Amino acid sequence: MTVSNALNGRKGVSEKKAHAIRQYAVKVGYQPDYRASSLTRRRTRMIGVCLRATPTVPWWAQLVYEVQKLLYASDFRMTLGIAPEGPKQENSFLDHFMALRCEAVLVGPLGYAYQYKALAHRLSGIPYAIGFETFSDLPIDSVSIDEFAGMQLAVRHLYEQGHRDIGHFGVPDEVFGKSELRTRHNGYLSQMKQLDLSICEQWIISEASGKMALESLLQSGEPLPTAWCTHDDNAATRLIRVLDEMGYSVPGDMSVMGFDNLNIASLIHPQLTTIGFDVHRHARAIVDQLLENVERIRNEQKRTEPVASILTPPLLIQRSSVAQIKEA
C-alpha cells in the first residue's frame, strides 16, 4: 500500500520516501498494470471503436482522430478495431471490447440494415453503444452527418444561382427505390419537388452506368441540365473529366456541385463548390453523447429519454465550379 500511495501521489507516505520510491520505479522501468488498476477503481475508462472499413477517406480518418483526442482530454482511452471482412471479424472485436471491459462502444458506419441486425446480440453485452448511423433495426443512440439536408442545400444553392434544370450524377444503385431513407439522392428529389422543379429521369445517372450514360446523354441531342449535383467529390471529378472530353466547360456550359469536401475538391480545376461538415463539431457531438451516458450508467441512473438520433448540419463550401445564370 505504501508503494501504491507513493506512485499515485496519495497521502500516508512521507515526501522523502515517496520520492525515493518514484526514482526507483523509473530506474527499473516500472509500468503500472492498467487492467489491474481498473479492477481497483471498478472502471476501465476504455472506449471501443469498431469500423467496418479502413478510414481511407481523410474526413473519416480525421473524425476518428478527433474522437480519440476528445476522449483523451476527458481521461478516457480508445481502442480501435477495423473489420472489413464482415460480421464474424466485427463480432471478434466486440468480444474483445467486452473482455477489456470497455465502458462503451462506437460502431459503424455500416450502411445496411442486415449488418446492424447482426450486431444486436453482441451489443447487448456492452454497457452502452452508439452508432455513426441510424437504423431502426438497432435501437441505439446515433450521431450522423445529415446527408439528406446536405443534398437539399446543394440543390437550393444551384437554384439560387438561377439554375432550374438540375441533374444528379453518380447515384449508388442500392439507394434507388428506398424513399424512406434519408439518403443524398432522396434529399435531391425532396428539394427538387419543394422548389417545383422538373425531375428528368435521363438526368439521374447511377454510379454503375456513369460515363457511358453521360456520354450517351451528351450525344443524344436531347435537352441538357445547366447544373449537376453529384453523389460525392469523386463523382464530381469524373463528371468534369467526361464533360471536358466531350467539349463542355465547367462552369461555363454546366455547373457542378460536389459533396463531402474531400481534399480533391480544392485540387482539381475548377475547384469544386461542395457540401461539407464540421468534423470537430461532429466528433464533439459523438463524445458528449457517449460520455453523458457512460456517467449515467455508472451512477446507476435510469434512462428517461428516447433513443437519440443526432444530426450534424451541412456546410456550403463555395469555390468556382458553379456559375450564376439568368433565370429562364
Rank of each mutant, 00 (worst) to 15 (best):
M46T: 09
A83K: 05
A99E: 03
N91G: 07
T40S: 11
D33P: 03
A36Y: 04
V49S: 10
P109E: 13
Q31V: 12
S14T: 10
R77T: 15
Y24R: 05
P84T: 08
V57R: 13
L70K: 10
T40C: 07
L110Y: 13
A20H: 02
G12D: 04
T44W: 14
E85C: 00
K117C: 12
T134L: 05
R41V: 12
Y24V: 11
S14Q: 03
I126T: 01
R10P: 00
M78C: 15
E15M: 05
M46V: 10
F135R: 04
G111D: 08
R22A: 06
P55Y: 14
E90C: 13
L63V: 08
Q89T: 01
P84S: 08
A53V: 04
L71P: 06
Y112E: 14
Y114A: 14
Q23A: 13
D33W: 04
G48D: 08
L51M: 14
P32H: 09
H96T: 13
A61C: 12
H96Y: 10
L123Y: 02
E133F: 07
P127V: 05
C102H: 03
T54E: 14
A53T: 09
L123D: 00
K69D: 13
S92C: 02
P109K: 13
D95A: 06
E85Q: 01
E103D: 07
L51E: 15
R41Y: 01
V105H: 00
A61I: 07
P55W: 13
T54W: 07
V13H: 08
I82L: 12
A118K: 12
R35Q: 05
E133L: 14
A18E: 02
G108W: 11
L119M: 15
E15P: 00
R43Q: 09
P58K: 07
Y72F: 10
G48I: 10
K16D: 09
Q31W: 08
M78H: 12
Q68C: 15
P109W: 12
Q23R: 14
C50G: 09
L123T: 03
I126F: 01
R22L: 04
E85N: 08
Y114T: 09
I47E: 01
T56V: 15
V49L: 15
N91V: 03
T40M: 12
L39H: 02
R52A: 11
Q115P: 11
V26W: 02
L123N: 03
H96F: 04
P87C: 07
R10K: 15
D137P: 02
T79P: 00
V67D: 10
A113W: 03
P32W: 09
L123G: 05
M46E: 07
V28W: 01
